[in-house]
């Protein structure tokens, strides 16, 4: 871990100010940043401790919920309002990491966690995300866990979050503050694709800090699921995950929303596939057709080609679970 200044911010304004100038990073739970600093992947000159900022509440907000950036993953997942109104979010959070990590990791930190690409994590190897311009050895290298959608010639990393997959499906908004005031970012615009600048994971501007995740008013309690597929039954990042929410009007899908995790540089949604399901019956045939629309865009590598079929099947099963009202249990490892 490199040497750095340590600053405790007492207010959001102080935090924003402390971020300016130096190569500074905000720190709260530390579960990803300290990890990366020990690997010399992150080498900030200044750490701004924001744990004392008043951003740790879950509040009703315009009929929805506002989850403060410092609310831990555990508090969010077990919050009665989250669990009853946005169970897909609770389920996704609990599918990620471990009891210990969820007690420390925060909502804001989860948004901003970095990829688990082996090469990004290993400073003995080149990586365009870690050191722009050095190359991407994952392309042609070990790429079992890498992206199949939205890749670029410079980067095939994925965003590893479970929570964010649910937030994507829920059309959450991210409220941020920065040198030029506050703004809200639609979830779909928060994370980005690597393009030619894979060093940027998201669209936060310099000096901006996440204040909250805002969940719009909606009824998602009955037809949802978070289905996660991974290399062991717990404590592993997703190979593919699906957050699915269906609005059903009798035997018709009035709205379908589903996002995939583990397959792209951001939680992956496909508007065409979702639109396809609108007004259709929640049948296996329709789910298969929707899945086929999604995977049409896949551009896999040698090591992760299996993810294309896995994603297809996961979409079908996820939508089936959501339609049937049999969401995936976190502890019962049989897949419903």
């Amino acid at each position: 871990m490199n040497r750095f200044d340590y600053v405790r911010a007492g207010t959001v304004a102080e935090a924003v100010q402390a971020l300016s100038g130096a190569n500074a990073r905000l720190i709260a739970g530390g579960t990803n940043l300290v990890d990366l600093m020990k690997y010399n992947v992150e080498r900030p000159d200044r750490l701004v401790d924001i744990t004392r900022l008043p951003l740790n509440a879950i509040e009703d907000h315009e009929g929805g919920l506002r989850i403060g950036a410092l609310v831990t993953n555990a508090i969010a997942a077990y919050d009665e309002r989250v669990a009853s109104r946005y169970p897909v979010l609770a389920s996704a959070i609990l599918a990620g990491a471990t009891g210990q990590l969820r007690n420390a990791a925060t909502t804001g930190g989860n948004l901003n966690q970095r990829t688990r690409c082996y090469y990004f994590y290993d400073d003995a190897t080149p990586c365009n995300k870690r050191e722009p311009g050095t190359g991407c050895p994952a392309i042609g290298g070990v790429n079992r866990i890498h992206a199949i959608f939205g890749i670029s010639p410079t980067c095939i990393a994925t965003h590893p979050s479970d929570m964010c997959v649910a937030l994507a499906a829920l059309d959450a908004e991210i409220r941020v503050a920065g040198p030029s005031g506050e703004r809200s970012i639609p979830f779909s615009e928060y994370h980005r694709l690597p393009g030619g600048t894979p060093q940027f994971d998201n669209t936060l501007q310099p000096g901006e800090i996440v204040l909250s995740v805002d969940l719009p008013a909606q009824d998602t309690a009955s037809h949802y699921t978070y289905l996660k597929l991974r290399d062991r039954l717990s404590y592993a990042f997703a190979l593919v995950s699906v957050a699915a929410i269906l609005d059903l009007d009798g035997d018709t899908v009035s709205r379908a929303r589903f996002a995939l995790g583990g397959v792209a540089h951001k939680p992956w949604r496909n508007a065409e596939a979702e639109a396809f399901l609108q007004g259709k019956a929640p049948t296996r045939e329709n789910f298969e057709a929707a899945a086929d629309i999604v995977i049409r865009e896949a551009t896999p590598q040698d090591g992760n080609a299996f993810k294309v079929e896995l994603a297809r099947r996961a979409i079908i099963r996820g939508l089936t679970q959501a339609a049937a009202g049999t969401p995936q249990s976190v502890s019962d490892k049989r897949i419903a």
Binding site: Y6, I27, T31, L47, G99, N103, A104
Partner: peptide
């Protein structure tokens, strides 16, 4: 592991279990 990948460092902080390897003492 020193990286939150194994749980051997688990302690209780204000009654909650966390990975002490990922917590800066100063915080």
């Amino acid at each position: 592991c020193d990286h939150g990948q194994c749980g051997a460092c688990t302690v209780l902080v204000d009654g909650k279990r966390i990975n002490s390897c990922l917590a800066l003492a100063v915080m």
